[in-house]
Design a protein around this nucleic acid. Structure first.
Length: 479
RNA sequence: GGCCUCGUCGUCUAGUCCGGUCUAGGACGCCAGGUUUUCAUCCUGGUAACACGGGUUCGAAUCCCGUCGAGGCUACCA
């Protein structure tokens, strides 16, 4: 049974990079009919917070990345827990003692200044500094300052990365590293190995930035007599300047994207295609479809720049795919978030407004941005009322024509307003542009706006006529 | 500095393993045109890349060597 895991440390909101790693772990596990585990790596008590943990699991589940085991919104799942490292302190100690007993690890009493001395000496002798502590061969009583170091053997660590291929390290370049501050305070590289074994993780899929940790973990894993693990290192997601994604880039947390009205299906689709593809030109996939097609062999080796325009494009695609009920639900939610008082509109008007916006927004937080004219009588330069070379008398005639037409329609004709107006234009041998442009501008006060039909349907007959009247007065004054 | 990884349009990528079908394909962006009263949507077209230098070969984006470039790691963080 294949088992993968995502092991975030709760020191901030769910990051886009962590999310992508989680996604690929999830995809691989599900594709292989295996299990996906969420483990919280909160050994660094000073920096870990409960809020971050909550944000991380909420974000992951929002995207549909629901764990088979580990920390979830419904509590802990699975019987190999606890799945928070802070609650596993007792678990690690025996393994630490084991390594101490076999001599694969040792208490090191080197002080900071002694360590510095060794480094300086190496520098003076112009050789690469690799720590081989003088305490590595002695068994001794720990002092309060001593730490537990791993005794790195002289060997070559070779592993077959499922994405990058064969990777080789010479451990003579690797210093004896600290695996625990003391028996009760083990550190990352050590706890990861123990947890992965105990939780029966078979495949470790993580970011590129962990490649350098891999030989350390393989060494510990071997010293402990654990089963071999498979590794796969994902390329990093980069900011537009090819650096690591940071706050400088803009939104790096999933929460921010969620709040801006990006859809989970769009995020999943986008993130999956950032570094993976099926081998053809297909662009749109549901989570289930990606699972079915996923393979680590088709994961890219090089880093990918996070391109927000592509995300926007995918998101607008999914917004249009949404059921009408969902569109209305999100539309209402975000209109309120954007500060609009939606109670001033009837349900029907609201639906019209949202329908109108669905075609133009990239994300729901864009909704209503250009719709200020619906809420108030627009102020505008009357010159823009002219379609092409129309003069003022022509404009007034056009507006009056429209006004007269509106007077004569019934309220329940509003739904067919486009048809009604277009037919009237034809029957009366009017020009489309000469009627529609002034009409639209009179209603919206803008050179660019939705169609007059849509605006009339929202504003209603009376308000539309009123705005036409005010446009006529404006032109008359203009003379 | 050392170690590791990577290098196809501006960006995400197909093609690289098994050299010819690649005058390098798709998508996003951008530009132009069409539909439309305008904007948006939609449709059509265009723009633009094999990092560089050697070698192997009849033939190289694809194989080999080197150079250059980019990123990661180099903690008693994870």
């Amino acid at each position: 049974m294949i088992k993968t895991r995502i092991a975030p440390s709760p020191t901030g909101n769910l990051h886009i990079g962590t999310t992508r790693t989680a996604l690929f772990n999830y995809l691989y596990a599900k594709n292989q009919q295996g299990k996906f585990v969420i483990r919280i790596e909160d050994t660094d008590i000073a920096r870990s917070t409960k809020e971050s943990e909550q944000d991380i699991i909420e974000g992951l589940e929002w995207l549909g990345l629901i764990p088979d085991e580990g920390v979830s919104l419904r509590g802990e799942l699975g019987d190999l827990g606890p799945y928070r490292q802070s609650q596993r302190a007792d678990t690690y100690r025996p393994y630490l003692e084991q390594l101490l007993a076999t001599g694969d690890a040792y208490w090191c009493n080197l002080t900071d200044s002694e360590l510095e001395e060794l480094k300086t000496k190496a520098e003076q002798e112009q050789r690469q500094f690799v720590l081989r502590s003088p305490y590595r061969e002695q068994k001794q009583e720990p002092t309060p300052q001593s730490v537990i170091r791993f005794k790195v053997p002289d060997t070559k660590v070779i592993f077959e990365d499922k994405i990058k291929g064969k990777i080789e390290f010479d451990t003579s370049l690797l210093g004896d590293f600290v695996i625990a501050k003391n028996l009760d305070y083990p550190l990352y590289n050590f706890v990861v190995v123990v947890d992965d074994e105990l939780m029966e993780i078979t495949h470790i899929i993580r970011g590129d930035d962990h490649i350098a940790n891999t030989p350390k973990q393989i060494l510990i894993n071997k010293a402990l007599g654990f089963k071999n693990k498979q590794f796969a290192h994902l390329p990093l997601i980069l900011a537009p300047d090819k650096s690591k994604m940071s706050k400088r880039f803009g939104a790096t947390s999933i929460k921010e994207y969620r709040e801006q009205g990006y859809l989970p299906e769009a995020m999943i689709n986008f993130l999956a295609l950032l570094g993976w593809n099926e081998g053809n030109d297909r662009e749109y996939y549901t989570l289930g479809e990606i699972i079915a097609k996923f393979s680590l062999k088709r994961v890219q080796k090089s880093g990918a720049i996070f391109n927000i325009q592509k995300l926007d494009s995918i998101n607008s695609h999914y917004i249009k795919q949404l059921s009408q009920e969902k569109q209305l639900e999100f539309g209402r939610e975000y209109l309120v978030k954007n500060g609009f008082d939606i109670n001033q509109w009837t349900a029907n008007q609201l639906n019209q407004i949202i329908k109108l916006e669905i075609q133009r927004i990239k994300k729901f937080s864009d909704i209503g941005r250009e719709l200020d004219f619906l809420w108030q009588q627009p102020e505008y330069n009357p010159e823009i009322l002219a379609y092409k070379a129309m003069n003022n008398p022509q404009i007034i005639a056009s507006l009056e024509w429209s006004q007269k037409l509106l007077y004569n329609i019934k309220d329940n004709d509003l739904e067919n307003i486009e048809q009604l107006i277009k037919t009237a234009i034809q029957e009366d041998s009017q020009q489309m542009g000469e009627i529609l442009w002034p009409l639209r501008v009179a209603l919206s006060g803008k050179e660019k706006s939705p169609s007059p039909f849509e605006i009339i349907a929202i504003l209603g007959k009376d308000e539309s006529i009123r705005r036409l009247q005010s446009a006529i007065s404006l032109i008359s004054l203009d003379k």
